[in-house]
Amino acid sequence: MTITLITGANKGIGFETARQLLELGHVVYVGARDEERGGKAAAAIGARFVQLDVTDDASVSGALAAIDAAEGRLDVLVNNAGLLGEGPVDGAKALRVFDTNAVGVVRVTEAALPLLRKSANPNVVTVSSSMGSFWAVTNPERPEYGLPLTLYAASKAAATMLTVQYAKAEPGIKFNALEPGATATDMTAAFGIGRPVGESAKTVVRLATLGPDGPTGTFTDENGPLAF
């Protein structure tokens, strides 16, 4: 069985990714900050729940320790938890957004590495964004060009760079980042945009189910590689 942990998985793309991976036979751990909502989400689809706040070292360590005790390894990590950070920008908000979208990737990945190294096919997928692509946000023909999401864009650029650097530092583990596509979730409600989560989750699932010879260090969307 493939043991998979998804952060921020009590709703949105994370929840739908969990559902689709369960259908493929994965043992899925739904990671979420809120125990009640996370537990209900996991129970609704037959997944396992683990309390996990990506901004809290003790929470992250406890979550991975629980998976270690139950499974002895981790095959797939999906770094999905994220904040949009829309609206006025200040230092406090910047710290919150970067702590979740970038530092959170480091916290969870570092805690997961010992378990991933025990897997025969370890795989880390980070849900990033084309908003973090310098090419996209400076291209007037792209929708990202006109979106006022300063902190989200900057933190997702960091998340993508972390993916590339981890791929180089850990050649035995696949690390890939993706743009899942504009998706109708709580995060995008203010913009009135997005397609059903099921469509976007397919892109996450594709990377989460790569074989041993799959690529690493990539940044893609459903159509292929994206420019940084």
Rank of each mutant, 00 (worst) to 15 (best):
E110N: 12
A111I: 14
A111N: 13
A111H: 15
L113H: 00
L113Q: 09
L113M: 12
P114E: 04
P114V: 01
L115E: 05
L115K: 06
L115P: 00
L116W: 10
L116Y: 12
L116R: 11
R117H: 11
N121Q: 14
N121A: 11
N121W: 15
P122G: 08
N123C: 14
V124E: 14
V125H: 08
T126H: 04
T126E: 01
V127L: 15
S128T: 06
S129A: 11
S129G: 07
S130P: 02
M131Q: 08
M131H: 11
M131I: 00
S133D: 00
S133P: 00
S133G: 00
V137T: 10
V137C: 05
T138S: 09
N139F: 09
N139S: 08
P140D: 04
P140G: 01
P140I: 02
P140V: 02
R142G: 00
R142K: 13
R142P: 01
P143C: 07
P143E: 08
E144W: 13
E144G: 02
E144D: 12
Y145T: 07
G146H: 06
G146D: 06
L147K: 13
P148D: 02
P148W: 01
L149F: 07
T150R: 10
T150P: 01
L151I: 06
L151A: 03
Y152A: 01
Y152K: 05
Y152P: 00
A153M: 02
A153F: 03
A154R: 14
S155N: 06
S155G: 03
K156E: 12
A157L: 12
A157W: 08
A158I: 11
A158D: 10
A158R: 07
A159Y: 05
A159E: 06
M161I: 13
M161K: 15
L162M: 05
T163C: 11
V164M: 14
V164W: 10
Q165W: 09
Q165K: 12
Y166L: 12
Y166D: 08
A167R: 12
K168A: 15
K168V: 13
K168Q: 15
P171Q: 13
P171V: 04
G172K: 03
I173E: 13
I173Y: 02
I173G: 05
K174N: 10
L178V: 04
L178Q: 04
L178P: 02
G181S: 05
G181R: 11
G181M: 08
A182P: 03
T183F: 07
T183D: 04
T183L: 10
T185M: 07
D186A: 05
A189T: 11
A190H: 10
F191P: 01
F191W: 13
G192V: 05
I193Y: 11
I193W: 13
G194C: 09
G194W: 12
R195C: 01
R195L: 09
V197L: 04
G198E: 12
